[in-house]
Amino acid sequence: MPKHRDILDNLSTAVVTLDADMQVLSMNNSGEVLLETSEARCVGHGLDRLVAHPETLATVLEQVIRTRSPLARRSMPLILHSGREIHADLMLTPVSEDAGSFLLLEIQPVDRLLRISREENIHHAQETTREMLRGLAHEIKNPLGGVRGAAQLLARELPDEDLAEYTTIIIREADRLRDLVDRLLGPNQQLDQRKLNIHEVLEHVRNLLLAETDNRITLVRDYDPSLPELVGDRSQLIQAVLNIVRNALQAAENVDDCVITLRSRPQRQLTIGRTRHRVVCRLDIEDNGPGIPEDLLPSIFMPMVTGRAEGTGLGLTIAQSIITRHGGMLGCTSEPGMTRFTIYLPMETSHHA
């Protein structure tokens, strides 16, 4: 049984077994994560320990018990005890063996499948955009270097020193455009991966923001001290978190009313891209600002997309690039009065360049 249990706990699908009276017999790790409860709390109890309103689920289970036939239900809504609603595909199978009979309930969240598909599409679009930007950067930087060199030569030949003001402007603007192109491409140096405490990264960002705002901003800590160290590039992770927090600060209507929460939690059985991780570090950066316009939300990580007239739209692009290179994932949910950026970082060693 322990070997079978190990297999169940490594499945990404939530699996719950129940007896003929619909009492919970067992639940794997994915079930605990999905239903936001624990096996210890549910074993020996009815469906009301699994979900808040179990009537629909009970009806389906009763049908399986009565007919002794497997049954599938697509996109069934389930209300968790936290109040959150999820939609899941259910597969219910009656199982008979020498020790007795039981019901096997497999739950696959539709939300997760849609998220994976959406992430793959986003990742493909970002890779296409990055390739385009690399080509564009090459086409821009070559003539830009020529313009800058010509301006320097012209400055040496000018008879009137007052005219040098114009060549200085040309050189300065050429340098500004070059820096902008470099920022478009994001950080390109190798990751300096070492063991680090993610809370030290968050605290560093917190202290920077408090100093920048003269302690006017409210930064709330909500850390899980049980999180072990992970492997990453400290300076680049600081840059990624700092870009997100500054983005929230710049979106705030009033700095004195701006509240940003920094939250850390472990999360089990998460798929990032095509890799499933047993446990990842989840960081939430949540603010009480006006929210991101709905039409802007799907493209906020794309270069040059910004809701501010004076913004370059590169902060979130660079943050996502850094997180992706760590083998992680960056997502966002937003509504008026609440925007939450969520960073997922693998707890095992990352090999991304």
Rank of each mutant, 00 (worst) to 15 (best):
P298F: 14
L297A: 08
H277M: 03
R274N: 12
E310D: 15
Q269T: 01
D287H: 08
G328M: 02
E286G: 00
I285S: 08
I260S: 05
T306I: 09
D287Y: 04
G273F: 10
Q269F: 00
V279H: 01
P290Y: 02
D287G: 03
C258I: 10
T271M: 10
P293Y: 11
R308L: 11
G273R: 07
N288K: 04
L270Y: 03
C258L: 10
I322L: 09
T261E: 11
T317M: 04
H277V: 01
D287N: 08
I285N: 02
P266L: 14
A319G: 12
R325H: 13
V280W: 01
P290E: 08
G291Q: 08
L296S: 13
V305S: 11
P303W: 04
T275N: 07
L296C: 13
I260M: 11
L296E: 15
I292Y: 03
S299I: 05
C258G: 04
V259E: 09
T312Y: 00
F301W: 13
S321R: 13
P303F: 02
H277A: 01
R265T: 12
I322T: 06
S299W: 07
A319F: 10
I323V: 15
I318A: 01
Q320T: 01
R325M: 12
P266Q: 11
G307C: 09
A309D: 15
G313L: 01
G307V: 11
A309W: 10
V279K: 10
E286M: 12
L270N: 01
S264W: 02
G291R: 07
G273N: 06
P290I: 14
R325V: 03
T306C: 14
D295Q: 10
A309K: 14
P298K: 13
P290Q: 15
G307E: 13
I322F: 12
H326S: 09
T312K: 07
L297T: 05
L297M: 10
L262S: 06
D287L: 03
T324A: 15
G315C: 05
V280R: 00
M304D: 09
T261D: 05
G327W: 00
A319T: 11
L314D: 01
G327N: 05
G313Y: 00
F301R: 09
Q267Y: 02
I323F: 15
R268Y: 04
P266W: 02
C281N: 02
V280N: 00
I323P: 01
C258M: 13
Q267P: 00
D295N: 08
L316F: 10
M304T: 14
N288D: 08
P290D: 11
A319W: 09
M304F: 12
I300D: 00
Q267S: 05
T306Y: 02
I323R: 15
I260K: 09
I300R: 07
D284W: 14
V259L: 06
E310F: 14
T312S: 14
P298I: 13
V280C: 04
H277I: 01
R265E: 07
L283H: 01
G313R: 00
L296Y: 13
P290S: 12
V279C: 02
N288V: 07
G315K: 05
R265N: 07
C258W: 01
A309P: 09
P298V: 12
L262T: 03
R325K: 14
